[in-house]
Structure formats: C-alpha cells, structure tokens
Amino acid sequence: MLSSSTLDRYIAGQSPVHLLDARVKLSLTLAYILALALLPSGAWLVMGLCAAMLWVAVRWSQVGLRTILLRAFVALPFALVAVTLVFSVPGQPVFRLPLGPWVLTASDAGLVRFASIVFKSWLSVQAALLLTATTHFTQVLYALRALRLPTVLVAILSFAYRYLFVMIDEAQRMLRARECRSAETPGQHSGGSIVWRARVVGQMVGTLFVRSYERSERIYLAMLARGFTGELRTLNPRSLTQREQGILIIGLATLAGLVLMTYLA
C-alpha cells in the first residue's frame, strides 16, 4: 500500500532550476516537447543535442539524473503500440522474426521510426518530470493563471490538488479495510463473482462520492465564514525580471533554431 505523500513527485531544493520562475519553466517545457515532436525521424544529431540540453538542466536541478531517467520509463509500455512500425514501414529488410505461422520482416526505415518515437517520448517525459520535480504544483497553478487559463479552471485545479491526497488516503483506507476482510476458506471458492466484486467497488465509489460531496459543503461553509462572495481573489503575479525574460527568449530561440536546422539541412 503506497502512502499518498510518496505520490507527490516534487523534490524540494534550492537549485537554480528550482528557483527559476514557474512561468518560464512551464513555457520552456511546453516548447521543448513541441520542438521534439516537430523533429523528423532519424534526426539523431539534433535529438542528441536536445537530450544534452535537458540533462544539463537536470544536473543543475540537483534532483539526480538517475531518478529522472528511471521515472521516465513510466511511458514505456505505450511504446509497444509503436513497435509494429518496425515491421509495417516499407524499407530495406534488416532481420526476420518468425512468429508461429507468420514471418515478420523488420525494415531499416521502420526501425528508425520506432526508435525515434521511443526516444522522443522518453525525453518528453523527462522534461515533464523535471518540471514536476523542481516546481511545486502551486507554482504551476500560478503559472497557468498568468498564462490566462480561465480562473474557474485554476480554482478547480487548486481545490482538486488540495483534496487529492485527502481523497486518495480515504480510498486507500477503504481498500485496506476490504483487504483485511478478504479471507479465504481452504477448499472453498473464494472472492465471489466478478459482478459481486465490481459491486463492492462501486459501493466504495458511491461512499467516496457522498463523503466528498459532504466535505465540499463544509468547505463552502468555511469559505463563506471567511468572507467568500463567489469571486476568487489572488495576489497579482509580478512581472518577469529581465534575467528571466532573457532565459525564456534564449531557450525558445535555441529550440526554434534546432528545429529549423533539421528542416533546412
């Protein structure tokens, strides 16, 4: 059973990457992922440069390259959907894979496509991980607000984040309680039917819903008691310093340059 605090991937620190304004970090992360997606398959040199840039940033952040690299494998299972490209893209045959009555032929172009997708995906996840690991979610919310996401959405995200861990704890207490009563009798069919098991979970979901609803009512009262009138107020975001603007512009320009380079070359 995992505790909800281990779910939060923010790693506290005082590195230059941690201290960089969240708006700059969020913009650069999005631009980085977009740039990667724009790169054609097989642009290994530029992809390598992108990887190097990211890993330098990870070094600066002091969160540990190993942590980021390992956690980035989270999206790997999805790569298996793309593995078929190896065999379906036409090109020079590289090797054959006998599989029962069928023989699959791998092409060079297919291998390049597949490897490019997996590598880009891996780097994109690392970039997102670096953002999450070095930026507290409240700062991400602040950045989203500054980037003009509707206030209602920012408010919902903020409440959701606040109560996420409270709810996950409640869900896990329920699962634990079920676990403790899921006994078996030797020689008897145990566990009940799938429909019954699904019903039990459904009732847990229903319970959680009712509790969540009641909690939202208490929160609303607590807000009213402190003068809430329906309008959401926050401190105004400060403007970016010249240094931050500089970092943002240099970062965006570098990424744009790298993408242009691959298309011009």
């Binding site: 409440f159 984040y161 606040r162 409270v166 208490r218 607590a222």
Partner: peptide, 10 residues
Amino acid sequence: DPDDQLFSPT
C-alpha cells in the same frame, strides 16, 4: 476538521 477549514494548496 482543519481539512475543511484549510482548502488552499499552501
């Protein structure tokens, strides 16, 4: 319940 009172992320 402070979890009702404290509804902001920080």
